[in-house]
Each structure stands twice: as C-alpha cells, then as structure tokens.
Amino acid sequence: MPSTENRAPGAEAPLEAPDEDQARLASRLRAQRLAAGLSLAGLAAATGLTKGYLSKVERGVGQPSIGTVFRIAEALGVPVGQLLASGGARSQVADVARVAARPASPPTEALHLRPLLPGGPGRLIAIEMWPPMEARPAQDQSTHAGEELLHVLSGRMEILFETETLVLECGDTLRFDARRPHRTRSLGAERARVLVVLAAEG
C-alpha cells in the first residue's frame, strides 16, 4: 500500500520540530534497532519504509503513526507496547499518568502522540493523540493488529474508513478493528484531543 512515509525525499510532507514526546520515542526506537543488530538500511528493507524517513524518526523530527510503529515493532521483534510507552516507572499496584507532567498542547498541527503509561507484556497501551488538521491521503491509511478504542477528550474529530466516515464529538467513544484501514483528522478550529487505548501483545 502506498504511503507518504515511502515518498521520495523531495516529496515528503513537512515534519514537525522535535519535542519531548518524540525525543523519547526516537530514543527508544534507535535503542531497539541497535539491540536487534539492524542498520537503518536493514530496518528500511524490513518495514518497507525509506531509510531517510526512519532516520528522521530516530532524530525525533518525524512523528510516525500508530500503524507505522506497529510495523517497526514487528520488524524489530519487540512488543509494540515496548515502543509506545511513557518513560515512567511501572508500579506493582497501579500506574498513574500525572497531568502536571504533560504539556497542555502539542507543538504543531501535525499528528502528535504522547504515550501515557509504562509498557510491558499484557499491559494496555494508553496514548494521548492530537489528530492532524488534514487527514493523510487515502492511499496512506493506517492499519495494525488488534482493536483500537478512541475517546474524544476535547474538540471534534473525523475518522475515515474505506467505506464509511464517522464524526466524533467531545465525549464520544469508538471501538473498531484496527485492521480496517483508517485515517483521522481534527475538525474545526480547535485541535481534537483523544485518548487511544490498545491491547498490548505478549
């Protein structure tokens, strides 16, 4: 399936500036790639993504979609929850994501992901997501294993499937089979803020 992540360098969409959330994910991806003994070229070959795109992701200046993180995790042979996790320490009793530790809004209008909780086998993956203002092209839809749950915390958003488009208002909750190709975007002047919950594998 064609993807904007496979575009020639001159045709790539603008990438947002590095920030703390992306820097953490970038560091984790690079560490796992090196642990797997893969070069950037090797990871590119295994995922179908370009070496240039992966280099930008590892430098924290490219925000991969959730579907892309699944592809990278599969190529690296690690649970996706090991990549989509916060830097917080796991608790034996309960994991807490403190509001004060998180910025109020993302730095740009592009897709932004903020993992909320520590990862681990059998643990749910919780992510705060700000859908982009413009949906990705139809040929660049996201797919990944398992179910996905979205709960709109603020604003309005649209999720586009191949045969159906749904508008979600603040407070709405959606659960769907994430193997269905899908794209999201914020609606209106305000960026939507969405809680995403995924089931971790392993």
Rank of each mutant, 00 (worst) to 15 (best):
G37A: 13
V61R: 09
E58K: 04
G77P: 02
V93K: 00
V57R: 01
D19M: 08
L40I: 03
T173Q: 03
D19K: 05
D19G: 14
E158R: 10
G62N: 02
A145D: 02
R59I: 11
V80A: 00
D95T: 04
F176P: 08
A36I: 03
V196P: 04
E201W: 03
H182Y: 11
A192G: 13
G88V: 05
P64Q: 01
A192Q: 06
P2G: 11
L15D: 03
E164L: 10
P103I: 04
E169T: 08
V96R: 02
A41P: 15
V167I: 14
P121G: 03
V80I: 09
M133Q: 11
R191D: 13
P181L: 11
L187Y: 12
A11R: 05
G77L: 05
A192P: 15
L49Y: 15
K51L: 10
D95N: 11
R191L: 15
S186A: 12
R59F: 13
L174Y: 02
R33D: 04
P107Q: 09
L84M: 09
L76K: 03
A36T: 04
L187Q: 06
A192T: 08
R180M: 03
P14H: 04
E201M: 00
T165F: 09
Q141I: 00
A200Q: 01
D19R: 06
A45I: 07
A126C: 09
T4Q: 09
E58A: 06
P106K: 02
P103E: 02
E164H: 14
A46Y: 13
R28Q: 15
A94V: 14
Q141H: 04
A85Q: 08
E74L: 00
P137E: 07
G37Q: 09
L198A: 04
A85T: 03
A100L: 07
S3W: 00
T163L: 01
P115H: 14
A13L: 02
V57Q: 04
I127N: 06
A97E: 05
A8E: 15
S55V: 10
R98D: 06
S3V: 06
L150T: 01
S154C: 02
R7L: 00
Q82S: 07
D19C: 12
S154E: 07
R24K: 08
G42A: 12
P121N: 06
L149D: 00
E164P: 12
A200V: 06
L113H: 01
S186W: 09
L40D: 11
A44H: 09
A8G: 05
A89P: 03
R179M: 14
G42P: 14
I125V: 10
P131K: 00
E201P: 05
L174Q: 10
A199Q: 12
L168D: 09
L54G: 01
L117P: 12
A36H: 06
I127K: 02
A89H: 05
Y53K: 02
L174M: 12
T163M: 01
G37T: 11
G48H: 08
H182G: 04
A46F: 13
A97G: 01
Q22V: 13
L34E: 15
A135E: 03
G119F: 00
T184V: 14
E164S: 07
G202P: 12
H182R: 07
T163V: 01
R102L: 12
L25G: 15
V80D: 01
L25Q: 14
